[in-house]
Write a protein that binds this DNA or RNA. Sequence first.
RNA 1: GGAGAGGUGGCAGAGUGGUCGAAUGUACCUGACUCGAAAUCAGGAGUACCGUUACCGGUACCGUGGGUUCGAAUCCCACCCUCUCCGCCA
Length: 426
Amino acid sequence: MIDPKLLRQSADDVAANLARRGFEFDVDEWRAHEEIRKSAQMQTEALRAERNSSARKVGAAKARGEDVAGLLASVKDLGDQLQAAEEQLQKAQFALQSIELGLPNLLLDDVPDGFDESANCEVLKWGTPRTFEFETRDHVDIGAGLGLLDFDAASRISGSRFAVLHGPLARLQRALIQFMLDVHTAEHGYSETYVPYLVQSQALMGTGQLPKFGADLFKTDNETPFYLIPTAEVPVTNLLRDTIVEADVLPLKYVAHTPCFRSEAGSYGKDTRGMIRQHQFEKVELVQLVAATESSDALEALTGHAEVILQRLELPYRKVILCAGDIGFGSSKTYDLEVWLPGQNAYREISSCSNYRDFQSRRMGARWRNPESGKPELLHTLNGSGVAAGRALVAVMENYQQADGSISVPAALQPYMAGQKSIRKN
RNA sequence: GGAGAGGUGGCAGAGUGGUCGAAUGUACCUGACUCGAAAUCAGGAGUACCGUUACCGGUACCGUGGGUUCGAAUCCCACCCUCUCCGCCA
């Protein structure tokens, strides 16, 4: 959510910033609701003050044993007036809230202009894609050739966009997850966290998936429904919901491995082959909660932590900064890491690292107490994949494939595979 | 799933219709005493919003949402959560 004070002060500047994303903020409509809200609030509070003081007078008079009939008559209409004012206020607040919850975050100045991914700016290229002296295959063929990756069975069980892994391939994914968790906890100072995979709507409201993007989520049919988390960002960031922490606990750095569930509504026909885009995938997520002054540096550091994983796995990647039209709803600035996939002859997203600044923390009331002012201030929240395990598995399979159909195990993962150096048929 | 108890400020814990945003204790901050600290004494201190912005005034918040009332932490209804016992289960 954008700071309502900033909105009142300079709605036009906000609209100009959001327009860079291609988002149209109807300032006049918002302003009309805001004016009604303001007058309704002042009126409501004045009427309440009147009610409160007259109620006190009635009480005092009764305590003295005086007749209160006159007093009661004088406040006869107050209730109706108050009720009308409250209803008007409530309506205006609801209208404002639904507008404000639908506004994306303000972009930082260094986010490049552009409408889609073609305008994203490459800031770094790491590693050199390997040259193969044989015809490369994609992970689907490699996995099928080894008999370790089965989409047919998955579709019999659950339909499309699911995968079944067997044996050493399943273990390789587990090895990737373990490796990532170990690096982030031991070397990057993150605290390992286990969190619920089912959350309620207010958590998703806090991180910004709701109210706008409910169609992307799986939802249970309980009376108060649960949602399956689309990313660990949701439960982990919400750890700080409605709390005020002391300065000495900052920065808070969490790492969590969770499965992620996405309905992928509207992505029909996109990435239908293989396990690039699944309803269920594994991800190791990095989340930081920091003081406002620290978030810019924290984004660079967090992105670097994800990069280390790709570097240790010796997977070529590039780092891009997302342009105004491609960046996510709640982010003020995002770096994507794209890993080289020989099977697609392309770089594909494997991590997305974003600085949400106070956008999420305002929605969920995540604050810290600034010792300088003694006052609670909103935290800045950041998160990034460190990295997506399913796609990392694809990247390892394709980059480490051998002419005989086997897969070499990256050196960094061998300790997690009981020293196994290669995955081959039988 | 069944039975019972309970949700009040950082914590503990009073408060069953009228200056209760809320006693008291404790933790916290400031000052006094002290060489310093402890102890003691005095004072301060919740969160958010609105108006004024020197000071200050107002509103809301006692699990959540409704209701009754001139007036609700207190009464009524629904829901949520926690704890104990039983059942079931990993």
